[in-house]
């Protein structure tokens, strides 16, 4: 999705790499999420989706033109 957004932003050379899934349990290391929120998230998202609904990636691009 970010690749599409970057293309809409004007970038033509775009690379997505280092894509990794992030489980709901892995979100627990972030202090932004309370245990109560994570428990609610687990109840709200079907178990079959919980380990693959979130992923992380790096996106790299270049503004085309003379260097």
């Amino acid at each position: 999705m970010f690749g599409e957004k970057a293309a809409k932003g004007g970038f033509k050379t775009i690379e997505v790499f280092d894509r990794r899934s992030m489980t709901l349990d892995e979100l627990a290391v972030y202090p932004l999420f309370t245990p109560e929120f994570l428990a609610w998230l687990k109840r709200s998202i079907p178990p079959a989706q919980q380990d693959r609904i979130i992923y992380t990636a790096h996106i790299r691009g270049k503004k085309d033109g003379h260097v």
Binding site: M1, S44, Q49, I54, T56, I59, R60, G61, K62, V67
Partner: peptide, 18 residues
């Protein structure tokens, strides 16, 4: 700048969240 570049790491959703 022309020839400049970006590199971002981010979290994305695979499919639809409730």
């Amino acid at each position: 700048k022309l020839g400049g570049r970006f590199c971002v790491a981010d979290m994305l959703v695979n499919g639809e969240l409730p």
